[in-house]
Amino acid sequence: MNKNKNVIKLFDRMQNIDRRYIYIVVALSIIIPLLIPFNSRTYVTKPTEDIYKKIDSFAGDETKAILMSFTHDASTMPELFPMEVSVLRHCFERNIKVFTICWLPAAAPLVDYALNTAKEDFDVQSGVDYCNFGYKPYVLRLPIMLGMGDDISKAVETDSQGRKVENLEIMKNIKNYDDMNLVVDFAGSSSAITWITYARARFGANIAAGVTAVMVADNYPYLQTGQLMGIFRGLKGAAEYEKLVDVFAAYESEDYPNGRPFSKEIIKETRVPITGDTVPYKYKKARIGMNAQSIAHIMMIFFILLGNIGYFITRKKEL
């Protein structure tokens, strides 16, 4: 009887615990796995895999390119930035032409930051291997989207450095969505839907989305209907793509000097260690983050269970 009273008392006290103690526990559950990283397994899901395969199918093809659209500011960087760096790394590793564009003033430095982070390890040239269209006002999104369906160099006349787009070497064999056949929109919103509405419905462009986890549910109906050919789902999606690039695009051997083709068997069997110096920190940031994410989730599930047990026990007492 006394024991029961003590349990009820304990749960009573726990229900009134100062929330700042919970903040400390949350912080520790994130800080400890970041300081002591471990080699957790990253499972690659189909929506991420599909984007990888599509981008990789453009490898070495002078007549194909991808467009990365940045529709976010620094507040969503932890989830979106690792995705962007991974996609750029993939393109640079596999010699794929890549264009970047942004629609918010605050996104302009993020595009430069992503390009500078990824190109450090590659011998790539602006205007030849990649081209940054720079900041374009959001109000012009619609005419630019539609204009790109006819002629990219007319829809976007100058790049971020003020050069005429039509004179750039990268534009050779690239005219419209038939050539720039994949648009990946990175956003903390449903802005990929605008691409679907205008670039896909009218011109048949392939659209993929890199979104923060909070926006995934909104984008799912478009994935299910095939209007989105793939989706990066928050930090998890970024971690998956980091792994794919490590396992295939960045793979080097005598048989495959410039990366190897995608294979389901290889990805299932391969574990890429994230501890140690084999992979630079900037290319495994999302995977290290996912360690902390997993621990934080386990801790939250524990708190939810504890809170519910406490609720039912104290309610029983009141009855």
Binding site: V26, A27, I30, I31, L34, L35, P37, S75, T76, M77, P78, E79, T212, A213, V214, M215, V216, A217, R233, G234, L235, K236, D277, Y281, K285, I288, G289, A292, Q293, A296, H297, M300
Partner: peptide, 27 residues
């Protein structure tokens, strides 16, 4: 669930900055 995941990711991003870029404790 996805919202919680997103919010935790943001916290992870900031702590990665504090521990990694600022203090240099993450390699």
């Amino acid at each position: 669930g996805y919202t919680v995941m997103a919010r935790v990711s943001l916290l992870i991003g900031r702590i990665q900055f504090l521990l990694g870029d600022w203090l240099g404790l993450i390699k």
